[in-house]
Design a protein around this nucleic acid. Structure first.
Lengths: 204, 204
DNA sequence: TATAATAAATGACACACTGTCATTTGTCAA
DNA sequence: TTGACAAATGACAGTGTGTCATTTATTATA
């Protein structure tokens, strides 16, 4: 969280600083961005920055959270519009985010947030489902999976199924570590979610 | 990818270097880890490091990929064991990973990979489903969601459903940006996966 | 074996960024 | 007007990065 001094700042100066920060983070992902650039572009002395924020991540996550605040209200709206259908509401939001988001800088900022390490690490994990040199490996997997059980019409949909499973598995790992769940808890949670995936989140 | 020189290195020296790298990355997440520490601990001159690798990330992702290679073979085994049931296979892997992984350093390495930025950013996004100050917000969401449609027995399972949706949505964003999909493609993919979530990955 | 050509090793160095701190400047209440 | 507290400032020490000219090793060739 930014320090008290930050919130005491006159509106004008505060916005100016945040604008400079967003600009920098739109240009470079978190770990390539530099405080030096931000203060230069905002025209404030270096020391002042540390008067307002703990460090780089402090501004960064403050910006990111401000960003999501807006989306919260949107979600409420969408839920109403879709009569409580959570998935339809989320699809609607996804659509609006992609199509209606006008501000290039804002978009780049979020893009960087998602792309950087997150993406690379997930990629490495997902590569488990990809051919390394030949595509022998993937073929083998493909052959081994019992497709009769799967709720798919064409073979191409199997890609989506794998993506979903990986995404949920990934999230479970992260949660296990971040919330320091016991192995038992972690596996229970994981099983619940995998069952939900199998049977569907919605009743038939 | 590491440079040719790296692969020309005598086995002993190469392993020693990788050991030092893993040690560093087990101690500190990617962006806090330093090449200085790695070369010091490996006992090689700084210049040599750059003879072998492009930069820090180069070693890092090389290590990470080596790590997942092992898991690939495991997945094949599990698929066979579970007669092609992909979800059961993945549950089994998850279990083994948590319970049978013996090496502390390896575990810490992966933990850092998952925890750092990935986790913080997903957290910021997921916070959309969390109470900010009062829990008014979450209550409202909870009230709005039409639970009749959901495939749940108790109210607590709704948490898992939201987690799943967020995880899959998150992955879709990342993919849209990393593969530079058009808005149309992205939304199509997203819809397919959301339908799969609704109806279940498996046939009834 | 001597020599040339190529590959690898080395560590000093320039550059960049971070976070701190002593000092200055501003504000506000008594 | 003065004292106490809050904020602003920028110089500075510390740390890390990536490069490069030089040295050393290896391999090919005559």
């Amino acid at each position: 969280m930014p320090k008290r001094t930050f919130f005491n700042l006159p509106e004008q100066k505060r916005q100016n600083l945040m604008q400079a920060a967003e600009e920098e983070f739109a240009k470079s992902p978190l770990y390539e961005a530099s405080i030096s650039n931000i203060v230069k572009s905002a025209g404030i002395p270096r020391g002042s920055f540390y008067q307002y924020f703990e460090d780089k991540e402090d501004v960064y996550f403050y910006l990111l959270k401000e960003e999501t605040k807006t989306r919260k209200i949107e979600l409420i709206d969408k839920l109403k519009k879709h009569h409580g259908d959570i998935i339809d509401a989320v699809i609607d939001m996804y659509y609006e985010f992609l199509v209606d988001l006008p501000d290039d800088q804002e978009l780049n900022f979020l893009k960087n947030a998602l792309l950087n390490v997150t993406h690379k690490i997930e990629d490495a994990v997902t590569s488990m489902f990809e051919d390394s040199h030949s595509n022998d490996y993937m073929e083998q997997i493909n052959r081994l999976i019992d497709k009769e059980r799967l709720n798919i019409e064409d073979d191409q949909q199997i890609y989506h199924i794998l993506q979903i499973i990986v995404a949920v598995a990934f999230r479970n790992f992260v949660e296990k570590f971040s919330k320091e769940l016991s192995d038992k808890e972690a596996i229970e949670n994981f099983s619940i979610e995998m069952q939900l995936l199998k049977n569907g989140l919605y009743r038939n």
